[in-house]
Nucleic acid binder design. Structure first.
Lengths: 107, 107
DNA sequence: TAATCATATGATTTGCAATTCATATGAGCG
DNA sequence: CGCTCATATGAATTGCAAATCATATGATTA
């Protein structure tokens, strides 16, 4: 059972699917169908992952008719990733970054 | 396969065993035997986990005779956890923190 | 209000990674 | 050197959580 806040936090961000979602949503809000299509995810896969991200307040939801638009709460993600970048830059130059998160570079 | 730096980073910190090690080492360096005993870990379990943490430069190793002393590189961990604390404080007040990391409170 | 579209939810399966178990390496010491 | 202590390493196992599959809910429109 996950009972520690840190574990909860890190576990949520330790999966490629959720990182891809974060990366995509950084470009703007999307509803579930749009997101599923862009990432080639099953609809339920997208929903499950989005729910986890929303539960931990990494993304926000807004209902528009039948659709639900998910958007990124950048205030928490951006500073974290900036710290990691610094760490990686310092120690892990040799590691591959096959799917770099583009908005990392903007700042 | 883990290929993305962010995933590597978060996965490493997403396990209770590694968080317990980080917590313990925050109080000072220890060798493998001491750490295993304090955390009730099998020796090999401690070694495997310490290796992973060392590979990612979260901890440092120093040989002293047969023993190897592991110590925390606080420069990376502390700022990260501070950000998470702020996030948790804001959104997850209700979540339990059964094994709080003490040096979080000092700063 | 039936039909359809958009999304959520629950149960089952499955894949992977942490632990364990067994063994290897390597340092100090008599 | 042979022995023991400290740690590392590799292979096998196992537990868990993400993906999948099937179904439910809920909103819109005709």
């Amino acid at each position: 059972m996950i009972c520690n806040s840190y574990e909860r936090f890190f576990k949520t961000l330790a999966e490629p699917a959720k990182l891809e979602i974060i990366n995509l949503l950084s470009k703007g809000p999307l509803n579930v169908s749009q997101l599923s299509k862009k990432l080639n995810f099953e609809q339920s896969r997208a929903s499950h992952n989005l729910k986890a991200l929303a539960d931990r307040h990494f993304v926000l939801v807004e209902r528009k008719g039948k659709e639900r638009y998910y958007s990124l709460d950048k205030t928490i993600i951006a500073p974290i990733l900036r710290l990691i970048d610094a760490h990686v830059e310092k120690y892990e130059k040799h590691y591959c970054k096959c799917k770099g998160i583009p908005w990392r570079k903007k700042e």
